[in-house]
Write a protein that binds this DNA or RNA. Structure first.
Lengths: 125, 125
DNA sequence: CTATTAAATGCGACTAAGTTGCAATTGAAT
DNA sequence: ATTCAATTGCAACTTAGTCGCATTTAATAG
């Protein structure tokens, strides 16, 4: 059905959730990608029902394993949670870029996610 | 049909778009609100077809009169464009707050919009 | 190793924000 | 007042994401 990978398996086992092929597959793709992916994106690589995908994503978010945000194209994008960073979304070409050299703090607020919308260097006239 | 207001009328006339009652009504409500509103929000005050609302919003955005962003509840929120500022969206209570004392610049990027997701002070345990 | 059972999967039907086509209406300009 | 393009409102549509339910799978106990 899907490929396997011991590192990813450990990641799942460490949380107390069931180790399933679908979960391994999702996390493996997210790790390989090294950029946020949507359901449409993962579907290119593996055929998985969207209900399964989104239900697992919900579980991963609850277990604090992934981040997500909505892009310009109305789709949610997901990535493995590593060092916190912001995302830039270009409103011209819809590309998504991870922005690491920015950090935002607001006293008394807990910040999960920062999204910056605008025009990327490539899309300036 | 809707209320009128000379200040808003001027705002429309200054762009080269038609002055219609729907447009006056939308801008007037956005101005009164002083916070971003969704279609659902404006519909509480005036009965306007959603196609009319969204088509006018699209025109306002094209004319650079308003800002918009998507909140946690999957709805788009709109506000009159004034001083640039970020928005904080609480993922617990879905409230939206304007954050003025933050400014983000990225060399070679044009930034339209910054959204911060997290937990607001009221929602910390 | 097999039986048990709670959790996970996949399918199809559904939801809801936003979009589109089109006929009727309105507002700016002559 | 007349004209004509732009705008409005309705209904039908689109589409990402959700939900119910019957079937399958993974973890555990025996």
């Amino acid at each position: 059905m899907y490929e396997h990978n011991t590192k990813i398996k450990k990641l799942i086992k460490d949380k107390n959730i069931k180790l399933t092929t679908a979960r391994v597959a999702i996390l493996e793709i997210l790790e390989k990608a090294k950029k946020p992916l949507s359901y449409e994106d993962i579907k290119v690589d593996i055929s998985m029902d969207k209900a399964t995908f989104y239900r697992n994503i919900a579980k991963f978010e609850k277990e604090d394993m992934i981040n997500s945000f909505e892009s310009n194209d109305k789709k949610r994008y997901f990535e493995l949670k590593k060092e916190p960073h912001a995302h830039f979304i270009c409103m011209e070409c819809n590309s998504i870029q991870c922005i690491k050299n920015i950090d935002i703090t607001l006293p008394n607020y807990e910040i999960y996610n920062v999204t910056i919308n605008g025009k990327c260097p490539d899309c300036q006239i």
